[in-house]
């Protein structure tokens, strides 16, 4: 499986509005062949969960350039609550090293800091996206 069947939500939660990074990553993933659902900044956590549910995404990419990563654990909990354990979450932007573990503990799969290469980001998205799809409900389940 390649990038083509992967659907990813690129979003920003919290209060910061700087979206250069999220737009750039959105374009990277689109150019790699993925379907990208892109949102402007300031999404509420409930809205992100709704989006991820209704759009049936495999991946959620959250950009945080200020301190909005501090509420990502809340997002992770809300995704679990909604039964979206199979969805992988990647965080991009500026996250101080001392706060990485807190995000990993909450279930975040990867953190990409400034200067990460396009190749690394795409490769990770493909790997995690494919893994997420493996865990999704298959079409056979609907014919039971």
């Amino acid at each position: 499986m390649g990038a083509a069947s992967i659907k990813v939500l690129v979003t920003k939660i919290g209060l910061d509005g700087h979206d250069r990074g999220s737009r750039l990553v959105g374009a990277y993933l689109r150019d790699a062949g993925m379907e990208v659902v892109y949102t402007p900044p300031w999404q509420e956590i409930d809205a992100v969960v709704n989006l991820a549910t209704q759009e049936d995404v495999d991946l959620v990419g959250v950009s945080s350039l200020a301190t909005d990563h501090l509420i990502i654990p809340d997002l992770m909990a809300a995704l679990k609550e909604a039964g979206l354990e199979h969805v992988e979450v990647i965080v991009g932007g500026i996250v101080p090293e001392s706060e990485h573990q807190m995000l990993f503990d909450s279930g975040v799969a990867e953190i990409f800091g400034p200067g990460s290469s396009r190749e690394d980001i795409v490769a990770s998205a493909v790997k995690l996206g494919n893994a997420a799809q493996q865990r999704k409900l298959s079409s056979e389940e609907f014919s039971r």
Binding site: D31, V37, T39, N50, L51
Partner: peptide
């Protein structure tokens, strides 16, 4: 590119958190 940015969804953002609204975007690709 073959990929797609599904933008319309975001412009209906005011109802994003409402479970009584189901919005799904589909791409014309492929």
């Amino acid at each position: 590119s073959g990929g797609a940015i599904l933008g319309d969804r975001t412009r209906m953002g005011q109802h994003s958190a409402d479970r009584g609204v189901f919005i799904r975007s589909i791409a014309a690709r492929g």
